[in-house]
């Protein structure tokens, strides 16, 4: 069954960004430039945090606005990105209203969550989790 990354309770987030560093480590690199997940404060750390993750939309806007066919739909939600077809126009970044499409500055291409769940295994507080997507009747 297909899985997706979900935010379970954003109020548990302490803003340590271990998830962002984990996502970047998928490439065995340190830092945050290639991370598909983003954590920022809600206007100051005293008010808590926003965790931006791909919602694995059934009908993804990023797919609809991609002019080069680089983004394809993933079974049961979310998308897959073919870097070789991507022209780095940035439409997908603008198209995602939750801001879940990040930009990989090292290769100047978008970076979109593949729902592998690597980040969730580094969240010490259970903010995010990899969950199974329920089959949608169409």
């Amino acid at each position: 069954m297909v899985k997706k990354l979900s935010v379970i309770d954003v109020d548990l987030c302490v803003g340590c960004q271990s998830c962002m560093f984990a996502c970047n480590r998928r490439f065995a690199e340190a830092g945050v430039a290639r991370s598909a997940i983003h954590v920022q404060s809600v206007g100051g750390v005293e008010h808590g945090f926003i965790v931006k993750v791909c919602r694995a939309c059934q009908d993804p806007p990023c797919f609809k606005v991609c002019p080069s066919g680089a983004i394809s739909k993933r079974k049961d939600g979310g998308v897959l990105l073919d870097y070789t077809k991507c022209i780095a126009c940035g439409n997908c970044v603008k198209g995602c209203i939750v801001g879940a499409v990040q930009w990989d500055t090292t290769i100047d291409k978008p970076v979109i969550c593949v729902h592998c769940g690597y980040c969730a295994s580094y969240c010490p507080y259970g903010v995010i989790r990899l969950e199974e997507i329920e089959e949608v009747e169409t």
């Binding site: 945050v32 430039a33 990989d104 500055t105």
Partner: peptide
């Protein structure tokens, strides 16, 4: 800033990170 840093021994980096992360948490 945004950056991504590479390693001479990428495998060792991930192993050490996991060991440290586990101990620290």
């Amino acid at each position: 800033g945004r950056d991504s840093l590479t390693f001479k021994s990428p495998k060792l980096y991930r192993e050490l990170y996991d060991e440290l992360f586990k101990t620290l948490t």
